[in-house]
């Protein structure tokens, strides 16, 4: 489904990604982790072309994200993305946040978009808040709305860029629960996160990055049970034993 092949990326003279390769199969959940500054957020933003890469290529189904002339707008409408800081449209109600893309990009009718929005927002338990504005909701609620907004586009895959990093601790679970449910429903997911509990529970594979390189890319049990690299062992010992 998503195939990242030997990509490298520079900001000016600074190389942020070096020869990264990984893939996400259909229905697979892949967690990307690593210390801050390791390039994991940059990597996930390359998947839907929000960040350009200078070398290598990325395929999503059969579309080449990195090729010139690819219709990125169309491609992005088929991949959902959830951000660290939610990025809901602040001037629109929850309902409008969910409907805008459906109506303007997928050209659905207002009724159809509304029905979809209500169904999705009920699933995350926020139907009573559907007419509220993002600024009137808690962080956890906003992130659940953001996930619903992405799902409203009927995506073939979902990208999560540290979806719980900006949340208060007591709100992390309400967001993770939604993501676990999504994974169990068979959604193809690529998730940048530090939530190792989530990774253990639903990830098929874990990609560990350090200094812009993919250091490990292994099945979840193998990664947690027996990480190969010293760097990953060190990382795990720090975040698991506290």
């Amino acid at each position: 489904m998503i195939s990242i092949e030997n990509i490298s990326k520079w900001y000016g003279d600074f190389q942020v990604l070096t020869d990264c390769t990984t893939h996400v199969g259909k229905g697979e959940v892949v967690v990307v982790c690593g210390p801050s500054g390791s390039g994991k957020s940059t990597l996930i933003k390359c998947v839907n072309g929000l960040e350009p890469v200078q070398q290598g290529r990325i395929l999503v189904e059969d579309a080449d994200v990195t090729a010139k002339g690819t219709n990125l707008t169309r491609l992005r409408s088929r991949i959902g993305m959830v951000f660290q800081h939610f990025e809901l449209y602040p001037h629109m109600s929850v309902r409008e946040n969910l409907c805008l893309g459906q109506q303007k990009v997928l050209v659905r009718s207002r009724d159809e978009a509304n029905a979809k929005a209500e169904a999705l927002i009920s699933r995350v338990g926020l139907l009573p808040h559907i007419e509220k504005f993002p600024g009137q909701l808690s962080g956890g609620q906003q992130q659940r709305v953001a996930i619903s907004r992405a799902l409203a586009m009927d995506p073939i895959a979902m990208l999560f860029d540290e979806p719980t990093s900006a949340l208060d601790p007591e709100m992390i679970n309400e967001v993770l629960d939604v993501m676990v449910e999504l994974a169990q429903d068979g959604m193809t997911m690529m998730v940048v996160t530090h939530e190792m509990g989530f990774a253990r529970k639903v990830a098929d594979r874990v990609v560990f990055m350090d200094a812009g390189r993919v250091v490990e890319d292994r099945a979840t049990e193998e990664f947690f049970g027996n990480p190969e690299s010293e760097r990953a062992q060190d990382f795990l010992s720090k975040i698991l034993n506290h």
Binding site: R74, R76, L100, L159
Partner: peptide
Amino acid sequence: GLTSAAYANGFSTAQTYRYVLLP
């Protein structure tokens, strides 16, 4: 951030300005 979110939502540059950035 919001610009990225609008692009990720599938909006073109014109739509991103029309529905998100300008309002």
